[in-house]
Design a protein around this nucleic acid. Structure first.
Length: 126
RNA sequence: AGAGCCGGCCAAGCAGCCGCGUCGCGUUCGCGCGCCGAGGAAAGUCCGGGCUCCACAGGGCAGGGUGCCAGGUAACGCCUGGGCGGCGCGAGCCGACGGAAAGUGCAACAGAAAGCAAACCGCCGAUGGCCUCGCAAGAGGAUCAGGCAAGGGUGAAACGGUGCGGUAAGAGCGCACCGCGAGUCUGGCAACAGACCGGCACGGCAAACCCCACCUGGAGCAAGACCGAAUAGGGGAACCAUGACGCGGCCCGCGUCGUUCCCGGGUUGGUCGCUCGAGUCCUGCGGCGACGCAGGACCUAGAGGAAUGGCUGCUCACGACAGAACCCGGCUUACCGGCCGGCUCUCCUU
């Protein structure tokens, strides 16, 4: 029912350095998430996740948020520009069900796209 | 049929689409195909081991742990069987359950007294003395000497309990039963039990110090090993003053710092450690059992910013607690509900 939308390793933030670079990136916030965005030198968008134990002490619940975010991201990755995105979950996210979190993530990707179109992200380019 | 006890097991299912990780095969290096891919607790990190490194060689002290007995096990604080005590009509369940005659200590309040007993209320006053009566024997009275600890009262606890005898009143003073005992015998590997005997002497607390028996180095896979680029600590051998420093609790003890010679090297990345193991299943034999032995079959997650998922549809008893991170054995805690086996009690029917 859905078009193929793979999510290879190249589309993930793997090194501590990748995360550190995003400290200076642009911030985008929604009700249950916040994101740090910066342009990268790769061919597509990359995703990193930061879901601390402050969100939930239960590993199962943190896993749910990560999986949801990754799945949502991979479906929209083709539309996103070449940016690194770090998604940070707020503790309130733990209370929401899958459907509303998916809707919120969809809006988040949309805002990142428009942000990039308005040229804000270019600041990180060397 | 209803209540309940014990042991074992399962953890919504199916399909489609889109994904993720290891491995194998193919590859036009984009990827494609196939197999496999969380738990009974993966959890808490409370014990025990394996493995690894650290200065280990030994002895002593200290510290810590365990604590009825006997087994099982790699080991344990776990498990099995047994004993004792308690709870339950019962199937069964629960128990830090060694030593109080080695010593030290503790016990608020209350109470006369809290531990080599003592005597507030009380009981008695036989015996000696006193008073009255009596010629006397003696009788009566008070309770001075004195005797007693039954009863009352306090307390968590008061120097065996109940009953009978006994007595001036009483008292293990005597007896019966119970309790108690560092006695004897019998049974048992033992914990312990039974019988007999003794005679009432020894209160409680050892999750108070302590004593006894047994166990016990420390840190942890970010342990640790290997590979490889810039700055330049390092490793081995020989000699030496016995000073300073260090030695994962301390001491004996041991080592380093110095000089000479020889050899070549660490944080961050990559690879390994990383899953074949006290493994799982089946059968047979031994054992009450935990478990052991033998044979056969099987390979069953291995990530690393961290995979094991998302969406949709259908079915039903409407789905709990919860996510591996070096690996095992336990314990504890969380949990919607369901299945199987064995057993107990009550009621009904025959």
């Amino acid at each position: 029912m859905t078009a193929p939308a793979p999510f290879p390793r190249a589309a993930r933030l793997l090194r501590p350095a990748d995360f550190a670079r995003l400290q200076g990136g642009q911030r985008v916030g929604t009700r249950h998430f916040s994101a740090q965005v910066a342009a990268n030198e790769h061919s597509g968008a990359r995703l990193g996740l930061a879901i601390s134990k402050r969100v939930s002490k239960r590993a199962v619940r943190r896993n749910r948020l990560k999986r949801l975010a990754r799945d949502s991201f991979r479906h929209r990755r083709a539309e996103l520009p070449a940016v690194d995105i770090l998604i940070i979950a707020r503790p309130s996210a733990d209370q929401e069900d899958n459907a509303s979190l998916r809707a919120e993530l969809a809006r988040l990707w949309q805002r990142i796209m428009t942000l990039n179109g308005a040229d804000g992200v270019g600041t990180m380019r060397a």
